[in-house]
């Protein structure tokens, strides 16, 4: 059956999701919170990729950043502190049709959920992880986190933290099965978008640490980098993210970094002076757990029945003839 071109175009228009289709409730983050920039980038990505809202799931833990799924008009799972990754794995395991995003924070991921984070890197399931790292517990109001800078005074560390922070990018790169490790900052929104986009397109577990400003409890935490572009290092590569030409005018400190070079990635990750931004490591060959465990048959009553009968046969004793 033929269809007038106008109607066809109308239908196309109808099926197109404008950005508002991805906007959920009104964000309740503080004014100036870096989470807002991340939300904007993600909503843009969904629109640009035209992700079906019903086929998209945002899974989070607990913390300021973990409110994220409420602000998306997709499926969302706002679960328990630290447990977003295993929930997301359970969702993805038998639903490869769903786009799964995990939104987590430095407390959620690098403290209470550390075991899950390490193992999630190892499982390498196909999902995009946005780790909002502001270096402070915000929702519980100002306690030091594992990524707080050494010496930070907080409510639980009135005379300053004693320990060096952990470096989530270095830790991730330490896991043999890691397949995508990137670092972004909320104050370079174009680069943030490009990195999240690359993460989304990577098949595997894409870990993006996003340095994110907390104006309430840690204002000025990243000022030395925000205010001085020369202290930033933008990683440029065809296989990672290509730095946009207009950004290059402001951020002149560029490095051609091949994301398949894990050793160089480790070197880059090891310092914040300069602060690297971009895709540090990417390995497209790493198999995904859900593919390795993919069943070779459909789960139907007929199959179950025939296998069960066979199993019963093995254990059955029969009345004497």
């Amino acid at each position: 059956m033929s269809m007038p071109i106008a109607e066809c175009a109308l239908r196309l228009l109808e099926e197109e999701h404008p950005i508002d289709d991805y906007k959920g409730r009104v964000p309740r983050w503080c004014t100036g919170c870096g989470d807002n920039a991340i939300l904007a980038a993600v909503q843009r990505l969904c629109r640009d990729e035209q992700l079906a809202p019903e086929k998209t799931v945002f899974v989070s833990g607990i913390g300021c950043s973990s409110r994220f799924p409420h602000y998306m008009n997709t499926y969302g799972f706002h679960g328990l502190h630290g447990r977003a990754m295993p929930v997301a794995q359970g969702i993805k395991m038998r639903r490869p049709d769903l786009h799964v995003f995990v939104v987590t924070g430095d407390g959620d991921c690098c403290s209470i959920g550390t075991a899950h984070w390490i193992h999630a890197l190892r499982y390498n399931m196909n999902m995009t992880v946005l780790m909002h790292d502001n270096g402070i517990y915000g929702l519980t109001k100002n306690q030091a986190s594992p990524t707080s800078p050494q010496g930070l005074k907080s409510k639980t560390t009135p005379s300053g933290t004693l320990l060096e922070p952990i470096n989530p990018v270095s830790v991730s790169l330490g896991i043999r099965n890691a397949s995508f490790v990137a670092q972004a900052v909320d104050w370079i929104p174009d680069m943030l978008y490009d990195i999240i986009e690359a993460a989304f397109h990577h098949k595997g577990f894409s870990f993006v640490r996003i340095l994110q400003r907390c104006p309430e409890f840690l204002p000025g935490r990243f000022d030395e980098w925000v205010k001085d572009p020369s202290r930033m290092l933008l990683l440029n590569h065809d296989d990672g993210v290509k730095v946009r030409p207009e950004l290059g005018k402001v951020y002149q400190n560029l490095e051609q970094h091949d994301p398949s070079d894990r050793n160089r990635a480790r070197e880059i990750a090891s310092t914040y002076h300069p602060m690297p931004v971009g895709v540090l490591y990417r390995n497209q060959e790493m198999p995904c757990y859900e593919d390795l465990r993919k069943p070779d048959r459909l789960y139907t009553p007929d199959v179950i029945k025939s296998v069960l009968e066979k199993e019963f046969d093995q254990f059955t004793i029969h009345p004497a003839a």
Partner: peptide
């Protein structure tokens, strides 16, 4: 035997993850 009917046994990294994984699968309809 579970894989022969299309099922999966997932050995998680800990008890909490095992339960969270099951919850995720169930939430997704399995």
């Amino acid at each position: 035997v579970f894989e022969t009917v299309g099922g999966v046994v997932h050995q998680a990294e800990d008890e909490i993850a095992a339960c969270a994984f099951a919850i995720g699968a169930s939430y997704a309809g399995k």
